[in-house]
Amino acid sequence: MPADRPISINQVTTRERWTLEQAVDGYARHGVAGIGTWSEGVREMGVARAARRIRDAGLAVTGHLVGGLLTESEPAARRARIDDNLRVIEEAAEIGARCIVTIAGGLPAGERDLEGARARALDGLAEILPAARAAGVTLGLEPLHPMICAARSVLPTLEMANDWYEALAAGGDGRGLGIVVDVYAVWWDPALAREIDRARGRICAFHVSDWLAETVDLRLDRGMMGDGVIDIPGIRVMVEAAGFDGMPEVEIFSARDWWRRDPDEVVRIVRERCRTAV
């Protein structure tokens, strides 16, 4: 990636050692241009205060997490999820997020009806989409790796994300909708090039990290770019050819390595790897 290209860092990358406020200060201090935020950090800090601090630091919010998780079948639990999504939409609008990173949700405890869970997630997205459109916020549909289908997302492929986008944008109205491409989730997909091209004009966020060949955890063992097996530059070229014009956002969940390190060291290495491995 060109050395002068701006980058974003998702606050989860330094979450064990830095609060949101510390992350905002730290990223800005290191010359990082953007941040990905999480509701828990924003709510802890206070939405208005978080929005002001991020703005004053000169950071763009490349994505706000987490939206979706709409597979609940029990009515009260489903209503609670809808209400939380409406709150996330309000937060994203106030902090000026480029999109809400929106995941489907997994299978509720004790359930095995995968198709039913997918139908509920799609119905839930249709229910919250008018609020997103009214707020000027984009719901970025993010497929996650099939290994966490049961726990986190019944939307496991970019092909299905494109299908859902098109179902929700029936009649050609794609307002309030986008697609998130996370290399960690999609790198393995034989249909990746075709589906990125199909997502032309839809991609609202591009997340980078690396897949370690001997990964030891389903969610919390992501590698620093260049330490694993993903052709990140190749995927970046594809998403940019498909019209994505934003910053790559570094999102590393790493309980055994990067979360244990000094965050200033992590950010320095992120910036270097974005020059050489993204």
Rank of each mutant, 00 (worst) to 15 (best):
S8D: 03
P233C: 07
E214P: 00
D189M: 13
S153D: 06
C274F: 01
T138I: 12
D262N: 14
A80K: 15
M160N: 05
L192W: 06
P233Q: 08
A121T: 02
T19Q: 06
R43N: 13
L192V: 08
A76S: 12
R152F: 04
W187F: 15
E74D: 14
V208G: 06
L177F: 03
A3D: 13
R43A: 08
L86C: 09
R49E: 14
A132Y: 02
A199S: 10
M224E: 09
D182N: 13
D217E: 14
D210I: 07
D56P: 06
D227L: 03
G228L: 06
V216S: 11
M224A: 12
L65Q: 14
A241I: 04
V88I: 12
V61H: 04
G67V: 01
V180K: 03
L141I: 14
V229G: 10
R194Y: 04
E127G: 09
L69S: 08
R98F: 00
G234H: 14
E16H: 01
N85S: 01
C149R: 15
A131E: 09
A50S: 14
T71D: 02
L192P: 04
V186S: 07
A60C: 14
I232Y: 14
F253Y: 14
R112A: 12
V216H: 11
A104P: 01
G96H: 05
I203F: 02
A80H: 12
D221T: 15
M224R: 12
A3F: 10
A150N: 13
E272M: 05
